[in-house]
Design a protein around this nucleic acid. Structure first.
Length: 210
DNA sequence: ACCCAGGGTCATA
DNA sequence: TATGACCATGGG
């Protein structure tokens, strides 16, 4: 596992993900990027920013139809607009970033999962990047890479694969942030739904690769 | 004209 | 518990 990280780091360098001006903006991005490419999310973030809506109270008070227009480029705009407002209410109820940082990781994770529209990956993205808690994010790129490397054998659950990382690595927030970002970068280039193994920089090989 | 993108919820059996 | 339908825009 550590070998994989070192190879990715050597290939792509530090990613310094996640780009945002505030933890709340990261949380908004985590919801907007659900099953959606980041370039589309950037347009929506820019639209929200131009309306001064990257703020929990402002998001709650934003007229729904106008909010939907801003979210539109990120896709699923009706769902995501509602989810942003629901999450913003939760965010304020928890006492914002400071309040959310007080509680133990597992407690906060349970509360996040109870929010409508927040599933395991979104919750863990919020915990790892916005709240800087040491929890590993499992996304489709992570599952795909591990399967293609045959480091796991499906079927594997979200928590199963997450435990795999948690047991193999020390709980280091910076490491987890960097590792996940590297998996995404590698995934977009070489480990998409259709494998693009030409020029893959990994010394670790996918057994099924040419 | 397809397939895909850093998911999550809900109905059904 | 385990699939499938649905949500929706933008790029290849």
């Amino acid at each position: 596992m550590k070998v994989l990280f070192n190879q990715l780091l050597a290939a792509y360098g530090s990613r310094h993900w996640w780009p945002a001006e505030s933890p709340f903006e990261m949380m908004v991005g985590a919801i907007l990027t659900q099953n959606t490419s980041w370039t589309n999310v950037e347009r929506a973030i820019a639209a929200l920013k131009s309306q001064q809506w990257l703020d929990a109270e402002a998001l709650i008070n934003a007229p729904l139809t106008l909010l939907e227009q801003a979210v539109r480029p990120a896709g699923y705009f009706r769902q995501k607009s509602a989810r942003l407002q629901i999450f913003s209410r939760f965010f304020l109820d928890q006492g914002g970033v400071e309040g959310m940082r007080q509680l133990p990781l597992t407690t906060m994770r349970t509360r996040l999962l109870a929010v409508h529209g927040v599933g395991p990956e979104t919750a863990d993205s919020i915990l790892l990047y916005a709240l800087e808690q040491p929890i590993f994010i499992i996304d489709t790129y992570t599952k795909r890479l591990m399967q293609r490397l045959e480091m796991i054998n499906p079927p594997i659950t979200y928590h199963g694969l997450q435990n795999h990382f948690h047991h193999a690595l020390s709980p280091n927030t910076g490491l987890f942030q960097e590792f996940h970002a590297l998996i995404i970068e590698h995934g977009k280039r070489h480990c998409a739904a259709k494998p693009k193994c030409d020029g893959c920089p990994l010394v670790l090989r996918c057994p099924s690769a040419d």
